[in-house]
Design a binder for these strands. Sequence first.
DNA 1: CTGAAAGCGCTTACAG
DNA 2: CTGAAAGCGCTTACAG
Lengths: 348, 348
Amino acid sequence: MASRPNLSDIARQLGVSVATVSNALSGKGRVSRELGDAIRRKAEELGYIPSVAGRALSTGRSNVLGLVLADINQPLFPQFALNIEEAAGELGYGVLIGNSRGDPQEQERAIRRLIERGADGIVVVPRYDTRVTGHRWPIAVIDSPSSPDNTVSADHFNGGVAIGRHLRDLGHENVVIVGLYSGSNVQKDRVAGIKAAFDDRDLPIVWIQELERERGQNCPLGLVDFVKDGATAFACVSDLHALRAVTELQQAGIAVPGDVSVTGFDDLGWAGVVAPAITTMRMDMKRIAHLAIRHILHQLDANKHEAPEELAELSGGVPMELIIRQSSGPAPRARSNTDLAAVHARSE
Amino acid sequence: MASRPNLSDIARQLGVSVATVSNALSGKGRVSRELGDAIRRKAEELGYIPSVAGRALSTGRSNVLGLVLADINQPLFPQFALNIEEAAGELGYGVLIGNSRGDPQEQERAIRRLIERGADGIVVVPRYDTRVTGHRWPIAVIDSPSSPDNTVSADHFNGGVAIGRHLRDLGHENVVIVGLYSGSNVQKDRVAGIKAAFDDRDLPIVWIQELERERGQNCPLGLVDFVKDGATAFACVSDLHALRAVTELQQAGIAVPGDVSVTGFDDLGWAGVVAPAITTMRMDMKRIAHLAIRHILHQLDANKHEAPEELAELSGGVPMELIIRQSSGPAPRARSNTDLAAVHARSE
DNA sequence: CTGAAAGCGCTTACAG
DNA sequence: CTGAAAGCGCTTACAG
């Protein structure tokens, strides 16, 4: 009894059976009010903490969920981790982390490892263009509504529409889209949304990954050329690209948003802090995390946790929120030649 | 046997005892080569996976460690999480995440929750100016060598020295330090290091938190004024501040590094991608993570895991690495009045 | 309402 | 080298 007190300790001190103590503490089998109170009081007094191992062994449930994150380059990593942890915690679950290092095979291995470690279910934020399937285990996939295995996600398409409209309302017509990789469902949906806001016009797109394959890691994106050709806005599919765009333009002497507007996606931590602060779309992480967790719990025992009905309503994804900041402003009036000359001059 | 096979299944199929199977699989009690091989083969064949709950209950060890991260604003969150997870995984441990939401009380609660969840030990990356003490449980604290409860950390002081030297070597003498909060041990050490590189001269410091308390969240840092007064470099204590500085300066028409150099700390994900890419100091996360984990395992059973002797050698912290990129360059020759006038003009 | 008993899957002395 | 037995802490039918 020097170490953690257990059910037997409580039972012994009270002269009752372990079963009764267990029942009283769990509130399951019926126990008289007085005895129940006495037991609870004693448990409190002894600082009783149930042994997760004991419970796990007898129930077959660990009360732990696994979270598999794609990799360090997923800029929303902390947001996912924290929100999933919080949502799980509220429902009595702990969260074990796994990491796929951006490798599809590792992703599978990570899932398996977590299952072997006893996770009752897994939340996975998958790597682009990878499928999470064939595990006969409760899983929730957070990706894009258009992804085949998707469980919950933000409504990236309409997020794109919203940001596209925002730019259009500001008078921008010559918009360039900037994305990382066309194989990402999330990015595809965002891009499609942005285009939709422009009547599905065929806006030019810069795919960074392609560009870097040609010109090398972290190469300039060559955005200044687009500006010279009349572009007045860059709609980026992530704040990360927006940041890259803003700095590249600023470095070339092009004012944001004076000469050109830039928008991002995700409202990453620093998006509101840089100069100019970045206009972006934010997803409702808290809600997404809750839905994912509840979806798993429902698979775990359908009668205790009803299916999150919202999930059905949300087949298009959880709405995103437009955050307007300084990086987007009115389109400059149709540029005169002198304006363009000025841009040329400054960027030499 | 429809579900996961267990030791009994293996034992029964082979007509041996569970104890022997356990011994064979763990390699502890001695078992004849042939029997051992047969058992291992059968285990493999059945796809045997040990039950963590069963093992935990009988050994009193969960083989899980807890990781408490300060909050979402800790920009190294993903790095810590991934590296700790990896280091723990290599030694057979899983990692449960906890989150202190930047609140000292929550930090304590998070630690306790993880212990209650059965974590064998805890790694904590504490919030500024908070102590992690009084838990009679294996703990490793990753902070700054000068922190009272510190276990492992980067050598922030000498990191500061290195970056200070770098600037000085480039000819910068009018250097302004930019930090968030003087209460942070990490930041204090970095600042002290930078100053040391300048013979402990009393370099001006901008503490962002103070500034924001006066002027409001995300206010401009007013760096242009320093430039007008002759500053040629800003040594920032985090890449985050460096980014803020770079964009603020660029927005004001001040060229980085042409007019002014800017350096950061931590080599955050985007530091190499913005324009100009940010010169920074990187910590050896992998090594730090390993040391922290091994320190915990040593506390857990000293005879199985020897104390990481390196820990003693590293009382000053794990060396940091200087990453030179484009945001730092030679100090402009002593500025003429016309230069200053130009800066004035551009920043109006 | 209360309790005796079995069992979850493993490990660990201890005998043989 | 191998195995019978006890025990880790809890939960869950089942009796009483």
